[in-house]
Amino acid sequence: MNLSPDPWVWLAALLTLCIYSFLYKDNPFYKAAEHLFVGLSAGYFLVIYWYNAVYPDMVVPLFKQGKLLCIIPGLLGLFFFFRFIPKVGWVSRWSIAFYIGVGAGMSIPATMQMRILEQMKGTMQPFFSLETWHVFVENPSLASFGALIGIPLMIVGVMCTLSYFFFSREHKGVLGGMSRIGIIFLMIGFGASFGYTVMARISLLIGRVQFLMSDWLGVID
């Protein structure tokens, strides 16, 4: 055992334990850590944004370089504060509308490009490929069989999953059958993601335990 002499490490370790105490049940230690967390982090972001956005991108250009155009975003920003005065609170809607309009407009072509056209292209694979067929016939194994049916299965899966998202028609007949297969694909996909994620989640805990056991208590290297 080789306890850390650094008070900062002790502070970090105690806060870590305060948060973990929530797993047993809600308690004053957790409450204190939670409230401290909220206050400090809210302050942190204000400071970071001042130094990284407001100061270099507005204050400097406006007051030191005389770029008057920077007044506009400044005004849009200031409009938010009208909310503190109930009678003219609606002025803040101008800023909100600006923000929402820009976001919505930007997303339309980008979404069409990334989420639709590229994904369509990715799905347009040869349904049957002689190459994988030859590999399978010459060397029948689980792996070569998987490679053979992988792409066709993927194509069928995309179509069926998409049909699950049909809203304007009852899921009966062909559509019903397809959407049911779609659900099967969805469930396998969700299960796979869940299983895949377990690892990531455990590694987070490993990170914390390593901190407690090595940086703080010094029982491992």
Partner: peptide, 10 residues
């Protein structure tokens, strides 16, 4: 708070 897990804690 803008902090992801600060928010979650709260």
């Amino acid at each position: 708070t803008y902090s992801q897990f600060g928010y979650v804690a709260a």
